[in-house]
Amino acid sequence: MADDAILQVRDLRAGYGPVEILRGVDLDVRAGEIVALLGSNGAGKSTLNNALSGIFRPFGGSIRFMGAEIAGAPAARIVEVGLVQVPEGRRVFPNLSVRENLELGSYRRGRANRARNLERVVGIFPRLAERAGQAAGTLSGGEQQMLAIGRGLMTEPRLLILDEPSLGLSPLLVEEMFALIRRLNADGLAILLVEQNVVQSLAIARRAYVLEHGRIALSGPAAELAGDPALRRSYLGL
């Protein structure tokens, strides 16, 4: 496979207790690309996410990020090397202000450039600047999702994992969210997009993987997958 991959997952096996969920997953993300990881509920997307970000120790296999093995490393160290996850469900700090939420983003990484990054993030999300002093819990769902992503950007990620960023947003906001992800990527940021929203994800991704029962069932350029009959049958009901 490609040598320019910043994230290289090989034969990854992971799960909970005695239950193996991921049964040998191979996946690559190269510099500057959006890769979509698709799959229905229970396919193992969250397990893969948790293994990548160090929340659970994988059973076996390898995860190489920027050339270094990180499988089983503590979550704090994984953030330190620039692999940053924006967890699903807009997990903001509800009683802290928007500004404090963002500042906490640069807790482990990107502290030196905090002021500059803050400016950059509110440049991307002007709404957050308007609400800087407001408690994050009082924001709307879409604004909270933007705050969560903005907070992730404060860490100066080399690869940003977005876990279901469109979950629970209105159709209009979903559009906006995908446009935004494309914009972040246009600035050179590599993004692993973990989504159930197949059509929109394939529209912005360069490549995609489809996870089924803990294995990669399909993979390839997003444009090809969008026309794949098997995928269309199982996800789009066509």
Partner: peptide
């Protein structure tokens, strides 16, 4: 405020 988010920030 949110333990999972805190972990995600390192």
């Amino acid at each position: 405020e949110n333990e999972d988010a805190a972990r995600a920030l390192g």
